[in-house]
């Protein structure tokens, strides 16, 4: 480190840094029309995951309708909170949007308020793409044929039915709590990380019932290696037409894991209009519908107004439940 070259080196390093900085000044492009450059779509999860795949497929189709390009940027971390924050804090020029996953996106600020610095009001919803209903699943040879069978069994022998779920703090945990409260029952709650281990435990008869999402077990459902006894959608889903909803089974709850697109609050309404129009057209594209079917994506299109209203309702619901008692 000591030497006569020190000065020259410092100078050179300084030179490099200066040049680089001057290059780093963002290029100024004034949009006459929108979009004039690729739109970045932030995905708060790793490539290859469910949200990433859904985003890439949908945005690929949307390019045709918007006459521009989308670039997916993965920003994983903190169970999605890092990416959601990035969307909320993104420039409002319409060139950064992102995928939001209710209820996770709503739960993070409620549960991790001191860490997560965004809230629902920082987003401008564009469209919902997918609503993946919760599902109550049993092994194929289980004595439980309906949700009420589970409830009856739990009433007969409290604290014996072993029920797998996503662990404390997840929206499943809330559904499970409300399930117990609605029928005055108590089950053994076994936490799991991810559907894989949970499914293994179910098929190996280590648990009796599990709460998961329908799209995660659709292949097992088709192969009849599991039986789905109820789904958490408002009405029956095309993917599993013979399965009753929670409500039909007597449990008045809706449990959906959604994936949609949002922009940061304050985006130009014209840009929002262009984006949401393009998304609406994607959903009417038969090629897209075919592709979504192949991917087992439970499509559920909602426009900006409808989506926003639903998100606000959900947010209020979760905040109220959390105020009652964290789950």
């Amino acid at each position: 480190m000591v030497g006569k070259n020190m000065f020259r080196r410092t100078l050179l390093a300084f030179f490099i840094v200066t040049v680089a900085f001057s290059l780093a000044v963002p290029s100024m492009a004034f949009a006459q029309d929108y979009p004039r450059k690729p739109i970045t779509a932030i995905v708060a999860f790793n490539p290859g995951g469910g949200t990433d795949v859904a985003a890439r497929v949908i945005l690929k189709f949307a390019e045709k309708y918007i006459g521009g390009q989308f670039v997916v940027e993965n920003k994983p971390g903190a169970g999605g909170a890092v990416g959601f924050t990035a969307i909320a804090m993104a420039p409002k020029d319409g060139y950064t949007i992102g995928m939001i996953n209710p209820p996770t996106v709503l739960l993070k600020p409620i549960q991790e308020g001191n860490l997560v610095k965004y809230s629902l009001s920082d987003f401008e919803p564009i469209a919902n793409f997918v609503s993946d209903p919760g599902a109550l699943v049993v092994p194929p040879d289980s004595p439980f044929k309906t949700m009420m069978d589970v409830v009856e069994a739990a009433k007969a022998k409290p604290n014996t039915i072993r029920m797998g779920y996503g662990g404390p703090g997840t929206s499943e945990a809330l559904t499970l709590r409300n399930f117990e409260n609605a029928f005055g029952i108590k089950v053994r709650k076994v936490p799991f990380e991810g559907t894989g281990p949970q499914l293994t435990a179910l098929m190996g008869k280590n648990i009796d019932v599990m709460f998961t999402n329908a799209s995660e077990i659709v292949s097992q459902y088709k192969a009849k290696t599991v039986r789905v006894i109820a789904v958490g959608a408002p009405k029956r889903i095309p993917m599993m037409p013979d399965v009753l909803t929670y409500k039909e089974s007597g449990f008045d709850t809706i449990q959906l894991a959604m994936r949609g697109l949002a922009a940061p609050k304050g985006i130009d309404p014209k840009h929002l209009q262009i984006l949401s129009d393009a998304m609406a057209k994607v959903f009417n594209d038969p090629d897209f519908q075919k592709r979504a079917d192949e991917l087992s994506l439970p499509l559920d299109y909602m426009g900006p107004a409808e989506y926003k209203k639903l998100l606000q309702e959900l947010d209020a619901f979760y905040r109220a439940e959390y105020a009652k008692n964290p789950w």
Partner: peptide, 10 residues
């Protein structure tokens, strides 16, 4: 033990 760091949540 996240010491206020959101990145340590995972």
């Amino acid at each position: 033990f996240i010491f206020g760091q959101i990145m340590l949540l995972d």
